[in-house]
Structures are given as structure tokens and as C-alpha cells.
């Protein structure tokens, strides 16, 4: 299988372990990634706040570059990126009158022919192969945390169920994990307020960390760099808000799958977390 790849900015910096683990896992599963040449930022949670056209033009340039490179399907592991790409694509489908202005801004033709998929969709296609290749089952209790952008708004992303989604739970079961029942699967972590309103992030993320611990989760599993940053890099603020010392790690789904496939924890970037993944070392030894 060959698929276009749009890592996005977070995966080059604060969430590079998501990029490392996605590449390692997909390589192990025989998927060839074709990176979009000279890609730019999608505008994430900032462009749409300040300018509607900009929030369409930035993703449109990425999609047009992918078209030029002959990519028909593109994987955007970052939930914010895949959401922005889908939003822009649909906005241009619904409002073709915007297209001339956008093509002028990006200096390229835009056809809208690229299919955009998230990491759960790609892993879901490979689920049978993943179970067959699982050599070190991830026998842990996990809280699968989807966040906002993968499942909402449903009219844009059209993925899984907006309330109580299942795809990540099924993937986790396929690698031997036991997903806990919990009501925070799609609650917001505070997202882009990480820097400006850390108090709100501590409160919102705090509620879900607290509940995951209460339900006995050994790890919170995510598929979004913003969710991960808030649950990992902001753990000190979360614990201060809760007046607790919660040490439950936040892991990317690709890291969990990678461990189950017997990949080296270092290749999966597990050493990059601020909240240590204490059981990863033992998992690595088995491989």
C-alpha cells in the first residue's frame, strides 16, 4: 500500500514521537508513505479565527501540491490537520464561487480530487495484519481518547460516531488491550488554549485524567498532538489544579500499536514524554 503523507507542523516539533511512531508502524506494516512536497502549515486553530479565506487557502495549497505529485489519498495523522484539510475541501465543494480567489492565492490549480484520511482509518484497514503481527500484546487497561477534531463536526469529518466512537477501542482490542468504559472519549482537552489560557486546559484536561485514573486505566491513548501536549506537557498544571500526583501516561495510538508489533520503544519516541511510560522498557525487552 502506498499513501500520501502530510505530517504537519506539530509532528516536526512538540509531537515528533507521533511522526516517528506513525512512520515506524506503517513501515512495519508494509505501507509506503509519499510526503507532500514543500507542504505548508494548515492554519490549525488560528487561521479560522482571523480570516475565513486564509483558513481555506492554506489547506487548499497542501491539497493542490498533493494533486500535482499524483497523490490520490493523503494521510494526515494530526487530528487538527485532517480536520482543517477536510473543512477546506468541503467549503470549496459547497462554494465553488470561492475557487478562483483561492487558486489565485495559492498560485496553482485545485481540483479537489484528493481523499483525506486520519490515522485511525488507515490503521483500521490494516487491523487484521496488525493482529497477526502482534508479538507483544499490550495487556493494559486503556482509556481511548478521541478528542474533538477526529469526530466533530460529523457533517465535515463523517468518521465513526460523534458520541461514543469505537474505532480506536477496536484497534486497541486487536493488540490485546482492554479499553475502559468512560464518558470522556470526545470531551475537549482545552486544545489551542495551552499557551494562552493554561488555567482552562488544566481544568478540562484535569477532569478527563481524573476519570481515566478512577476507571483504572494504565494509559490514556490519543490520536491528536494537541490532546497529547495538553495531557503530557501540561501534566504539572493538571496535577496542581487537581491537587494530585497522577502519573498515568498519555500515549499515541501508533506507539501502542508499535509496542504490540515488538518495535523498539526508542524508535517509537516513548522517551520523549514528560510523563514517563514506565512499562515501555519491559515491553521493549520482549522484542
Amino acid at each position: 500500500m502506498r499513501i500520501g503523507y502530510y505530517p504537519g507542523c506539530s509532528l516536526l516539533g512538540s509531537s515528533r514521537e507521533f511522526d516517528e511512531s506513525a512512520r515506524a508502524v506503517l513501515k512495519a506494516l508494509g505501507v509506503e508513505l509519499v510526503e507532500v512536497p514543500d507542504w505548508n502549515c494548515c492554519g490549525a486553530s488560528s487561521a479560522h479565527i482571523l480570516n475565513h479565506e486564509l483558513s481555506i487557502a492554506l489547506p487548499a495549497r497542501i491539497l493542490a501540491l498533493a494533486e500535482q505529485a499524483g497523490i490520490s489519498e493523503i494521510l494526515a495523522p494530526c487530528a487538527a490537520c485532517s480536520n482543517r484539510l477536510l473543512s477546506a475541501q468541503q467549503e470549496l465543494e459547497k462554494h465553488p464561487e470561492l475557487l478562483p480567489g483561492i487558486e489565485k492565492a495559492i498560485g496553482m490549480p485545485y481540483k479537489g480530487s484528493v481523499k483525506i484520511v486520519n490515522i485511525l482509518e488507515v490503521l483500521d484497514r490494516l487491523k487484521v495484519l496488525i493482529s497477526v503481527l502482534t508479538t507483544a500484546p499490550f495487556r493494559k487497561k486503556v482509556a481511548s481518547y478521541y478528542g474533538c477534531l477526529l469526530v466533530r463536526p460529523p457533517r465535515v469529518v463523517n468518521f465513526d460516531r460523534p458520541e461514543d466512537p469505537q474505532s480506536m477501542d477496536l484497534l486497541l482490542k486487536a493488540v490485546g488491550a482492554t479499553p475502559v468504559e468512560w464518558p470522556f472519549k470526545t470531551e475537549c482537552c482545552g486544545a489551542a488554549f495551552s499557551v494562552t489560557r493554561t488555567d482552562i486546559v488544566a481544568k478540562l484536561s484535569g477532569k478527563l485524567v481524573q476519570d481515566a485514573v478512577k476507571r483504572g486505566a494504565d494509559a490514556i491513548v490519543v490520536a491528536c498532538p494537541m490532546c497529547h501536549s495538553n495531557l503530557d506537557l501540561r501534566r504539572a498544571e493538571i496535577n496542581e489544579y487537581l491537587q494530585k500526583e497522577y502519573a498515568v501516561p498519555a500515549m499515541f495510538i501508533t506507539q501502542v500499536v508499535g509496542l504490540a508489533l515488538g518495535l523498539d520503544p526508542k524508535a517509537l519516541g516513548l522517551h520523549r514524554h514528560l510523563v514517563p511510560v514506565a512499562f515501555a522498557e519491559t515491553a521493549g525487552v520482549q522484542s
Binding site: 486553530s45 474533538c148 466533530r152 463536526p153 460529523p154 460523534p162 475537549c188 482545552g190 486544545a191 489551542a192
Partner: peptide
């Protein structure tokens, strides 16, 4: 303060 989490519109 709207986080654009889209819970409302959903």
C-alpha cells in the same frame, strides 16, 4: 473562549 470543539453544533 469558544474552543471550536464543535460539541454544540454536533
Amino acid at each position: 473562549l469558544c474552543l471550536a470543539c464543535e460539541t454544540c453544533s454536533t
